[in-house]
């Protein structure tokens, strides 16, 4: 079942056309990574899925309210870890306050933040802040989560740990994930399907059939990487 579908979608800012007729679909439970050079329109595509931008022409269909993890975690500095995560469920009128607190506690536990609940963002490392950002995204139990280059500012070890945890959450909660990334290694390590974007269009779709966990150094991975690079 398709949870996201784009048909001939364009997006323009004034005279600048950022997306030029995007057609793509995402099936439920798939991990999709969109790669491409800076300015190719991948973040705009993600923001349209999130409902943060409106397409100029074409048709967009998203089956559920997605949640999003941003590049710089975008935590509110005046709220502690619990308060920031609570933001993800605060507006839900169909959830009681006690259930909201329970959901926040579960997210905190899932992301390994138990000892930091009353810490404020500036008391956390970059990796911990991004964990809070992920906890905030999953606390409302969405079926689709969007990641906008969430690890670009993190060190390799933290990124690797977060990759493992995201894959774990993805399989446990049977989520659909769409991630924008500039790293081919990351895309190959995580994705079921990789879309390559260039100049506002999708130029290639690559299905990754390998089992997880994947090794970035093996021959098959290297050949996929070389193939994807040729589209940049």
């Amino acid at each position: 079942m398709n949870v996201i579908s784009f048909a001939a979608v364009t997006k323009s800012y004034g005279k600048i056309e950022v997306l030029k007729g995007i057609d793509f679909t995402v099936r439920q439970g798939f991990f999709v990574v969109i790669v491409g050079p800076s300015g190719c329109g991948k973040s705009t595509l993600l923001r349209i899925i999130a409902g943060l931008e409106k397409e100029t022409t074409g048709m967009v269909s998203v089956s559920d309210n997605p949640s999003m993890v941003f590049q710089n975690s975008t935590l509110l500095p005046w709220r502690d870890v619990s308060g920031n995560i609570m933001l993800g469920v605060e507006s839900k009128r169909d959830v009681s306050d006690s259930n909201k607190n329970l959901l926040v506690e579960q997210s905190i536990e899932l992301m390994g933040l138990t000892q930091y609940t009353s810490h404020f963002p500036r008391e956390l490392s970059g990796g911990q802040r991004q964990r809070v950002g992920i906890a905030r995204a999953i606390v409302g139990d969405p079926s689709i989560i969007l990641f906008d280059e969430p690890f670009s500012a993190l060190d390799a070890e933290t990124t690797e740990n977060l990759h493992r945890e995201i894959l774990d959450i993805w399989s446990k909660k049977q989520l659909t994930i769409i991630m924008v990334s500039h790293s081919l290694d990351e895309a190959i390590e995580l994705a079921d399907i990789i879309y390559v974007m260039k100049d506002g269009v999708i130029v290639h779709k690559e299905c990754i059939g390998m089992d997880r966990p994947r090794n970035n150094k093996d021959v098959h991975t290297e050949s996929i990487k070389a193939k994807l690079k040729s589209f940049f």
């Binding site: 943060l52 941003f70 710089n72 975008t74 507006s91 409302g140």
Partner: peptide, 25 residues
Amino acid sequence: PRDVFSVAKMFHIGGLRYLLDILFP
């Protein structure tokens, strides 16, 4: 940061709550 407004929009924080919880702080 622009993404802060996106966070508010994404989590449906509008009206008075947007002013008191996001904008004024």
